[in-house]
């Protein structure tokens, strides 16, 4: 994007799209009010940070120069503390921050809608996510298709993502012209490459497509279902090739959660990434008891892009970072 000093005071979104944002927020708040899901606020600035090696937190310094904390990449940990404290169903609409993410569908500061349903699993939550999207886009007849991660790769690429070798995946990527011989990735990295480069654009072409049941290595904070072939009870929603939402049947086991944090930190260490402090309050809340629940985070800027036929996230933001 070219920046011109004469015009960069102006918003990059039209006022029509900014009003559409306001209307969307009003509809969402009404939706949750009618369903007795109450709105909460949790800190944007926290002492601990996410450990996921693929997420980079902004670090905040005090005016006096000392380290202060991190801007959150999602409100997941403090919202689960509220759930453990007995909140019941809650939602939050907030800005989240992810360093190094900038593109047509990425902006380092973006708006997230996150909500949790005690007593539900991810299947029930997928139905509610579909209802939210139908409402947001004012398309009550929008269809839903669910496909497992394994079926998706098997049907489109004749590949079993659980057992495929790195060489097999590299060969498919090279044939598709999306990888050079020099590209070095681990097992999940190759799956991510195939998903984003070979599969994503076709997802949700005719309606909403939920991908569910992810490999346990990509569980993030999802519960793992101990089937014959274990799967993570995680889903992602795609519409018009755009990834809109990520949800889980939430992991409630504090020991398992701690082990995943430690594995993340080991990976961060191997990649020479910063090693942020683990959220001890969150682990203590899990140990005290998180109710069985499902939760989901939905990107509001992308939802607004779809609602207003925008192809670039800047078209739905008042002021993108280059002119913030």
């Amino acid at each position: 994007m070219t920046i011109s000093a004469a015009t960069d005071w102006q918003p990059s979104a039209t006022l029509v799209r900014l009003r559409a944002r306001a209307a969307l927020l009003a509809r969402l708040r009404q939706f949750f009010a009618e369903r007795d899901v109450w709105e909460v606020e949790t800190p944007l600035l926290s002492a601990a940070a996410v450990t996921d090696p693929a997420l980079a937190s902004f670090t905040v310094h005090r005016a006096s120069g000392g380290h202060c904390g991190y801007l959150h990449t999602s409100p997941e940990f403090p919202m689960k503390r509220l759930l453990a404290a007995g909140s019941g169903a809650i939602y939050q609409i907030c800005k989240v921050f992810r360093d190094d993410e900038r593109g047509r569908r990425h902006h380092p500061e973006f708006s997230l809608l996150e909500w949790y349903r005690p007593g539900w699993d991810y299947r029930q939550l997928m139905d509610e996510v579909a209802a939210v999207v139908r409402l947001a886009l004012e398309q009550p007849a929008l269809t839903v298709e669910k496909i497992s991660y394994r079926e998706l790769f098997w049907e489109r690429l004749a590949l079993d993502p659980w057992t495929a070798s790195v060489d097999q995946m590299r060969a498919i990527a090279q044939t598709a012209g999306v990888a050079t011989a020099q590209l070095e990735l681990d097992h999940d990295g190759w799956l991510d490459l195939l998903l984003t480069h070979c599969l994503e654009t076709d997802l949700g072409r005719n309606g909403m497509t939920f991908i569910c049941d992810y490999p346990p290595s990509q569980a993030a904070l999802a519960r793992i279902r101990p089937d014959a072939v274990p799967v993570a009870e995680r889903f992602e929603l795609y519409l018009q090739g755009i990834e809109l939402a990520n949800g889980f049947t939430e992991l409630g086991d504090a020991g398992e959660q701690r082990a995943r944090f430690e594995a993340d930190l080991a990976e961060r260490h191997a990649q020479q990434l910063p090693l942020p402090p683990v959220d001890a309050h969150f682990l203590a809340a899990l140990a005290a008891g998180l109710p069985n629940c499902a939760g989901v985070a939905l990107g509001l800027d992308r939802l607004l892009m779809l609602a207003t036929s925008a192809t670039d996230i800047d078209a739905v933001l008042a002021f993108p970072i280059e002119r913030a």
């Binding site: 996921d52 693929a54 190094d100 993410e101 900038r102 593109g103 047509r104 569908r105 990425h106 999306v178 990735l185 999940d188 990295g189 799956l191 991510d192 490459l193 998903l195 984003t196 480069h197 994503e200 990509q218 993030a220 992602e236 990834e243 990520n246």
Partner: peptide, 15 residues
């Protein structure tokens, strides 16, 4: 042209 692509969770790429 530079495009940043990233799955919901996981490895980010510059295409």
């Amino acid at each position: 042209e530079n495009e940043f692509v990233k799955p919901g969770k996981g490895q980010a790429f510059n295409r």
